[in-house]
Design a protein around this nucleic acid. Structure first.
Lengths: 141, 141
DNA sequence: GTGGCTGCAAATGTTTTGCATCCGT
DNA sequence: ACGGATGCAAAACATTTGCAGCCAC
């Protein structure tokens, strides 16, 4: 994908993508990506991580997500997902911070009603569910 | 409310709350609050605005919202709203940035299904709808 | 070989903090 | 008058940018 856009495929760019793809369902901050990338490429600079993130965002290879904990996070984009999963959302554990993704376009009917009512033309939505994950429930709330 | 918690009712705290309540449906950044407050209390410091925001957040008098435009914003909390409106969400115009609030608990059934499926115990949700507002549609998309 | 990419350090922007002073109670 | 609250400036973070050297193509 990089090559198609006339961009260079550098070790650093591969390393950032590898970091994001290694853990399933990973939602890393720039700093966390930096830490992971440094293991295999210790000479990498934090600025490069930020610049790589910018490039990958523009190519829509990764997505920026805000879990509302004050940190900006990144995840592999929907490019890598199933056809019809362009709307995936997040379940966030308020205790341990764990994040799961889930699928489902559950708002379409509601969006229609909102359009009629407000005159907005709705294009996209973002849904986050907050609660306790299985592990935290087991340990006791 | 401040007094109940043993906190002082200072001119600055009143000014911040006044700024947030003046414009209906206002979603201001810390900097914007600062600008507005400076008009009536020019001696106020930005640090005080931040400290006041912290206090008001803890008392749940105001809410922090992330509209995913990179800015952290604040609005008067649901304390001031109708009984059953503890879930209000946002319609965001992707063109002009205008924000409207809307009410509605439309996810309850869906949340139940997610709980069964994932084992999460869901406590809260956050929904944002992105699109074009009436005015931007009129002007042409 | 060349232009884009990188590492480093410095700059920027936002939020927090230390401290002496001030003012609501 | 006491202790919390403020203003100012400095510090702490997160992110961006300038620039000389480097390396995919």
């Amino acid at each position: 994908m990089l090559r198609e856009k006339g961009l260079k495929v550098t070790a650093q760019r591969v390393a950032v993508l590898t970091a994001l793809s290694k853990e399933a369902d990973s939602h890393l901050t720039a700093e966390e990506i930096y830490e992971r990338v440094k293991v295999s490429s210790p000479e990498i600079g934090l600025a490069t991580v930020y610049r790589t993130i910018q490039v990958l965002l523009e190519l829509k290879i990764i997505d920026r997500i805000y879990l509302d904990d004050g940190y900006v996070r990144y995840e592999l984009g929907h490019v890598y997902e199933d056809e019809d999963s362009h709307h995936h959302h997040h379940l966030i554990c308020v205790k341990c911070g764990r994040v799961m993704s889930f699928q489902g376009d559950l708002l379409e009917e509601f969006e229609k009603r909102m359009e009629d009512k407000t005159g907005f033309r709705i294009q996209d939505h973002d849904v986050k569910l907050y609660g306790y994950c299985v592990d935290c429930l087991k340990k006791k709330i």
